[in-house]
Simulated assay, not measured.
Amino acid sequence: MKRVLMAVLLSLVVVGCGEKKPTYPIYTLAEKRKLYREAEKNNDEKKIKELEELKNRLELEWKKNNDATAFEEYADWDAVLKGL
């Protein structure tokens, strides 16, 4: 009986905690391309630098926390910033 009670309590804790929301912005691939094109078109070095910093932050999140969403975002930004 104790094991059943402990299993139920443990499962409630796991379900109650849930998945944390990311601390970084998430854009669609089209939005990423649009942001980069606008920055490139206007020769906005500050905005391009911000996008590169975001890419680096995503890489750190991915490697530090093994975050799959951060990896996908990083891969998208890497491709966009390289012009692929």
Rank of each mutant, 00 (worst) to 15 (best):
N66T: 14
E73G: 09
L9W: 02
L10N: 13
R3T: 09
E72A: 15
A68S: 15
N66I: 06
E59W: 05
E45G: 10
R37M: 11
C17Q: 03
E52N: 14
G16I: 11
L12D: 07
F71V: 02
A79V: 09
D76N: 11
E61W: 01
K47T: 07
E73A: 11
P25F: 11
L58H: 09
K63R: 15
I26E: 08
L35H: 08
E52V: 14
E19D: 03
G83I: 00
L51Q: 07
D44Q: 13
N56E: 08
K82L: 01
K49W: 11
K34M: 00
L51K: 04
L54G: 08
N42E: 15
R33W: 05
M1K: 00
L35G: 05
W77V: 02
N43P: 01
N43F: 05
L54S: 02
A39H: 10
V4D: 01
N65A: 12
I26Y: 12
E45H: 12
R33G: 07
E19P: 00
E72N: 06
V80G: 11
V13I: 15
K49Q: 10
A7K: 12
E38W: 02
D76F: 14
P22R: 06
L84R: 04
I48C: 12
N65K: 11
A30F: 08
K20R: 08
M1I: 11
L12H: 14
L81K: 06
V15Y: 10
V80A: 13
G16Q: 09
L12Q: 11
E45N: 11
L58K: 06
L54P: 03
Y24V: 00
I48H: 05
L10K: 10
R3D: 08
V4P: 15
T69C: 04
P22T: 05
L29P: 05
G16T: 10
N43V: 06
Y24P: 07
T23H: 07
N42M: 10
M1H: 13
K46L: 12
N66Y: 01
D67E: 08
A79N: 06
K21T: 12
L5C: 07
V8A: 03
V13G: 09
G83T: 02
V4H: 00
L9A: 15
A39K: 08
K46Q: 04
T23N: 10
N56I: 00
P22Q: 12
I26D: 10
K47D: 13
E59F: 05
K55P: 07
A7S: 15
K64D: 06
E19L: 00
A79L: 15
E31C: 05
D78G: 07
P25C: 08
W77I: 02
P22D: 10
Y74M: 01
E38N: 03
K47Y: 04
R3Q: 11
T23L: 10
L12T: 12
L81C: 11
L51M: 04
F71R: 05
K82E: 08
K64V: 06
